[in-house]
Design a protein around this nucleic acid. Sequence first.
DNA 1: GGGAACATTGCATCCGTATGCAAGCGACGA
DNA 2: TCGTCGCTTGCATACGGATGCAATGTTCCC
Lengths: 351, 351
Amino acid sequence: MNNADDNTASPRGKPLTARELARLMGVSQSAVSRAFTPGSSISPELRQRILKAAGELDYQPNAIASMLSTRRSNIAGIVVSEMQNPFYPTLIEKLSRGLQRVRLQSLMFNITRGSNIEEQLVALRQYNVDAVIIISATVLSGASVQWATDGRAAVLVNRTIPDLPLTSVSCDNVEGARAIADHFHALGRHRVSYVAGLPHTSTNLERQNAFVTRVAELGMRLIHCVAAGEYSYEAGHRAALEIARGEKTDAIFFANDILAAGGMDALRENAGLRVPEDVAVAGFDDVALARWPHYSLTTFRQPIDAIVEKTVSLVTQQLETPSLPPSRNPISGELVIRHSTVTEWSPEIIE
Amino acid sequence: MNNADDNTASPRGKPLTARELARLMGVSQSAVSRAFTPGSSISPELRQRILKAAGELDYQPNAIASMLSTRRSNIAGIVVSEMQNPFYPTLIEKLSRGLQRVRLQSLMFNITRGSNIEEQLVALRQYNVDAVIIISATVLSGASVQWATDGRAAVLVNRTIPDLPLTSVSCDNVEGARAIADHFHALGRHRVSYVAGLPHTSTNLERQNAFVTRVAELGMRLIHCVAAGEYSYEAGHRAALEIARGEKTDAIFFANDILAAGGMDALRENAGLRVPEDVAVAGFDDVALARWPHYSLTTFRQPIDAIVEKTVSLVTQQLETPSLPPSRNPISGELVIRHSTVTEWSPEIIE
DNA sequence: GGGAACATTGCATCCGTATGCAAGCGACGA
DNA sequence: TCGTCGCTTGCATACGGATGCAATGTTCCC
C-alpha cells in the first residue's frame, strides 16, 4: 500500500519505523514499542508476532528516538587519555565489554594535552550520556568534572580528584606499594629508590607516600626519589640513568611497568649494572611486557577484571539509585615476583 | 515566571530547553535553534544575543533531539579489536581526534573473539552512526559488514574484506614488504624468512605475497615462511624458536613489530644467536617499542598521521556525496633502519 | 449470572530540535 | 509614492518511540 517496495528486508531504503511496521501488521505503534520493551504490558503472543515480523522486515527501534523519549541514552562516556600505557587499552577494552553486558555502549572522549578538554566535556553533556567514567590521568579541574558529571552516574577509575567527592574505584595503591617495600626488605635490600611518573596524579601520590612510609617503617634508607615526568619508557630510561649516576641504590620501585622497562634497559645496557644482582627492579600494573622473558619484571598486578566488575556494578547502582552517596573502592591486587628482583626465580614458560 | 528558579545557571536541575530559553528571552524556539546552526537565516545581532543568554543560563542544544530531527548523529562508529598491539591504540587516539575536528564523536565498538559480533553491529545501526570505520583485524563476514554499513559512510582502515567493495585506507603493504626485502638484499642476506601473524588477514596476505615475490625477484632464498597465529610477543617468540631449530636463515621479516620483539628476544636469549650479526630482524609498524634501545628494530613505519588524515577526509567526502564510489587508498610509508639489521648503525639517542 | 479485578490494547501526547512556509519589515527602483 | 525583493522571524509540524490513560476483553469468585 505504501512504498513498501516488497515485503522483504529493504536494503538501501530508509529504515522501517515502528509506525510503519505497526500499520503493515494492523497493530498500534504502541504495541511495537512494547514488544521491544522488556517488562511492558503486552501479551506474549503479540510480542512474538511483532518480533517475528520485525525480524523479517528488518525493523529495529531507532535508539535516538528512544533516547529522546526516555531521557536515557544507554551510553557511557569514557574519558580517556594516556593510551600509550598498554594498561589502559586493556582496561578500556574490558570495561567496554563489561558495560555492554548492562546494555551500555561506550562513547570515548579522548582528552589529550593538545585537545580542547572543555569541548570534550561539553560533548559529554550534549550527548546525554547516562554515566561518565573517567580514566584519564590528565589533570582535570574539579569544577569542570563536577559540571560534566552533574546529575549522572560517575565513576573515577584509578584516580581521584582533589576536593571532589566522587565515587572511585582503584587498585589498592597503598597495599601495592607496601608489598613492594616489604619484598625489597625481604630480599635484604636496604638502599631503595622510587621513580614517579606524573608527579601530581593521585595514583603516584598514593604509591609514593605508601612506599616512602613503609620504607621508613622497615628501617630502610630511601636513596633516590625522582619524578620521571611521564609514564613512558623514555622517561624511565632517563630516570634510571640519573639514579645510576648518583649514590648507589640496590632496589628501585618504578611507578609503573613501562617506566620500569625503560629503567631496566638503561641500568643494564647503559649503566652496566646487573638486574637483579646489583639492583632489584619492580614495577606496577603487570602489563604484558612484564611477562616477557627479557624483562621478567616483578610487579604489583592490578586486578583489571575486578576493577571492571566493580566499576560496572557501581554504575548500575548509581543508575538505579541516583542519590547514592559517593564511595571509595580500593581493589586488592597481587604481588607478582619475577626475575627482576629474584635471581633464582624460574621464569615463566612461554606456552 | 516558570520554575526558572533564578536567572543563573542551575546545577542539578533538568537542563534548559530551547523553548524555555526562547520564552525567557521573548524570542521563538526557532530563533534559538538557528542561533546554534551555522549558516542559518538569522541576524548576527539576534544570534549574539541568544548565544550570550545561552552562555549565562548554561543552555546547550540537546544533541539527541537534534539527531532525531536531522537524521544526523555526528557519531562515527569505530569497530575495533586487537588492542594488544600498541599500534592500534595510537591509531585510534589520533583518529578520534581527527574525527573531532570534523565534529564527529567516536563510538567504539569492540569486537573480540568472545563478544557477540552481531550484537555489536546491530548497535551500530541502532545508534544511527553517520560513519563506520572498521579497524578490527578480526574476521567479519562481508554480508554483516554490508548490512551494518548500508547507506552510510564507511572506511576500512588497514584491511580489506574479500568481495566487498568498500573504501579502504591502508599503509602500502606492498611497498613496505618490498622495501624490507630490498634492505635484506642490500645487506647481503640471501637466506631470508617470513613470520606471519594472523595468516588470513589482508595485511598479512599483502605483506607476505609482496615479500615472497620480491625475494624471488632478487634471487634470494626463502628459507622459512611460518604463521605465528596471532600478532603477539609470545607468538613471535615461538615462531623464532621454531625457525632457529630449522635450516639456517640470516634475515627474518616479522609481519609486525610485536612479533619481531618476541622473535628477537627468543633468538638472542634462547637460541643463542646474535642480532643482527647472525640474523637480521625487521618488523612492520614502527611502534614505540621499535625505538627502544634494547630492540632498536628496523621496521617499516606506518604513516599514522597520513592514514588518519586520509580516513577523515574520505569520511567527510562520503558524508557530502553519499553516492561516492569506493576507492582504495594506499598510503606510502617509510623504511626505518635501526640496529636489528645494521651493526654499525648508531642507535637513536634518547633525549 | 453479575460484578470486580486484571490483562491487553490503542489513543493521544510528549520528548527537544530542525526546517518549510508565510508573515513582517525595511530598502530600493520606477 | 507604490510595488517588489530580500532578509528576519515566528508558526506549525516532523523526526520515531515511550507511556499515562481510557477502552476493551478476560477471568474469577460469590
